[in-house]
């Protein structure tokens, strides 16, 4: 196990190495992304403030990520409840199909949606990116919410029924507060996925780019590379922050249900 542990630590370093390079070069004054580092600067972050086109892309991305996260979580609640609480004909097949975007290459989702949208005579735009992101975020939301619903004691809801609550008020007063940590976790994860997603946005965004699509276009200009590193640093820090908060809520939910923590979202 000793040597396995060394291997595991080396592996973690390998996993994190690229991400740790980001801030090094984001704060490095040289315009060339190479060692040795020259001197400390925050110039590239101020450059970001001057890129007005980027601000539009950022707003666009925030709008898309927020809407997609809410939609995916709502769809996730329905499916997770159905999958954990009820049995119905074709359950395995239906759930399997809903979870399919988890493994399907994103380019397939992107081009097939593009074809249908153009064929129906619509124009692509923020709405089509939201449609695509909701589709790929829903399986993640379901995976998180399923464990939240599975850990819920059904006798609590039965007690509410016995005390005269309707199904709707039981859901609002008993079920919802108990699975709330799972819902918050699903919202945050979906938001992060949508915020970082590139391929579907690249195909379906139309005239207004999202932040990753804009970032991709920045990468072609060597002059802008330090700014790419600065923006990348901000995005990665934001993602990690959101994920840590999501994990915190997921664990709190598991603890509240008195479950042994198994770790990980999937």
């Amino acid at each position: 196990m000793k040597s396995l542990k060394t291997y595991a630590i080396l592996y973690l370093i390998f996993l994190y190495a690229p991400i740790f390079l980001l801030p090094l070069f984001a704060f490095n004054s040289s315009t060339v992304i190479a060692f040795p580092l020259t001197s400390f600067t925050t110039e590239w972050f101020t450059t970001l403030l001057t890129l007005t086109e980027m601000h539009g892309a950022l707003l666009n991305s925030l709008k898309i990520a927020l809407t997609s996260a809410v939609l995916a979580t709502i769809l996730g609640i329905f499916a997770a409840m159905a999958a954990t609480r009820y049995t119905f004909p074709g359950q395995k097949g239906i759930m399997g199909f809903i979870m399919l975007p988890l493994v399907l290459p994103e380019i397939i989702v992107a081009v097939s949606l593009l074809i249908v949208i153009l064929r129906m005579g619509f124009n692509t735009g923020a709405w089509s990116v939201i449609a695509g992101h909701t589709l790929i975020c829903t399986p993640f939301a379901i995976a998180i919410l399923q464990s939240a619903f599975a850990s819920l004691d059904p006798s609590l809801e039965e007690a509410a029924y016995d005390l005269g609550e309707t199904p709707a008020s039981t859901f609002r007063l008993v079920t919802l507060p108990l699975v709330m940590p799972g819902i918050i976790s699903a919202l945050l994860i979906s938001f992060t996925i949508s915020m970082d997603e590139f391929i579907i946005a690249f195909f379906l965004t139309g005239a207004e780019p999202t932040l990753p699509v804009y970032l991709f276009s920045m990468m072609r200009f060597p002059k802008l590379l330090p700014a790419v590193m600065a923006l990348g640093t901000i995005l990665v820090v934001l993602s990690v922050l959101l994920i840590v908060i999501a994990e915190f809520f997921r664990r709190r939910g598991a603890k509240r249900a008195g479950l042994k923590d198994t770790g990980g979202f999937l």
Partner: peptide, 19 residues
């Protein structure tokens, strides 16, 4: 169960199966 899963299933049908 069927009623609960149908919004999500319908969404996947329209935006995944149809495309």
């Amino acid at each position: 169960g069927v009623m609960l899963v149908s919004p999500t299933a319908l969404y996947a049908l329209l935006l995944l199966a149809v495309p």
